[in-house]
């Protein structure tokens, strides 16, 4: 069953085509990797799917429900989570960062605490509770960003180069976490050049050139 389908998705900037996708369908629980050169449209596609940027045109359907991008619907925003290539962490605590999305969804205190504790263990961040997020290493920041996404149990997870600029150990830990997303049946779209991540999402690979999907 299709979780997400988009049609005729286009975006241009200063007369330069950034994205021109005729059709893209993602099955529920499917993981797919976006590959392509820098500027091929991978990040643009992820940001549009996440509702951060709006396309110039196109239609979408999520779980059988049609939607428009202007404005990006709130019900859809609650189902989708996006993680930047270099995740931004709020200048608060590790716990507050993980709890942010739960607070935004109005999850009650006790339930929120339980889910945050579970996410902390999942990302192996328990020993870093007193460390300001800005002082975490690159790998720890990435794990915190993934925990922040994991705690929300999104139907669709969008990741932009999750293993870029990480050392070997952090890369391995990040890939392990990504595997648990896949095992939990989360539909994921991952922009990536990392061969191990590509193998992880071996189900499907989309190559983008000049904003178009050339191989699927």
């Amino acid at each position: 069953m299709s979780l997400l389908s988009v049609r005729s998705l286009t975006r241009s900037l200063a007369q330069r085509r950034l994205l021109a996708i005729d059709e893209l369908c993602l099955a529920d629980g499917e993981s797919c990797v976006l590959t392509g050169e820098n500027g091929s449209g991978k990040s643009t596609l992820l940001r549009i799917l996440a509702g951060i940027d709006a396309p110039d045109g196109g239609t979408g359907c999520f779980d059988g429900r049609p939607f428009a991008w202007r404005p990006y619907p709130d019900w859809l925003r609650k189902q989708v989570t996006y993680v930047h290539q270099q995740p931004y962490l709020f200048h608060s605590s590790v716990i507050d960062n993980i709890a942010y999305g739960l607070r935004a969804r109005g999850v009650p205190g006790a339930e929120r605490e339980r889910r945050v504790a579970e996410a902390l263990s999942w990302a192996r961040l328990n020993h870093l509770l007193d460390t300001p997020p800005a002082r975490l290493s690159g790998g720890e920041k990435q794990r915190l960003a993934l925990a922040r996404a994991w705690v929300l149990r999104p139907r669709l997870l969008l990741l932009d180069e999750p293993t870029a600029s990480l050392d070997a150990d952090s890369r391995r830990q990040t890939i392990e976490l990504l595997r648990t997303f896949a095992d939990a049946g989360t539909t994921a779209v991952i922009a990536c050049h990392d061969r191990d991540v590509i193998e992880l999402a071996a189900m499907r690979r989309l190559d983008l050139v000049d904003g178009r999907i050339i191989t699927d």
Binding site: G51, I52, Y82, F90, Y100
Partner: peptide, 24 residues
């Protein structure tokens, strides 16, 4: 700019995004 985008991607409403940005 990622502060606003992250709040948005985590499902925050417009008032919560504003409050988050001001805190940042």
């Amino acid at each position: 700019p990622r502060a606003r985008e992250t709040a948005l991607a985590l499902g925050a409403s417009a008032p919560r995004i504003a409050w988050t940005l001001l805190l940042e």
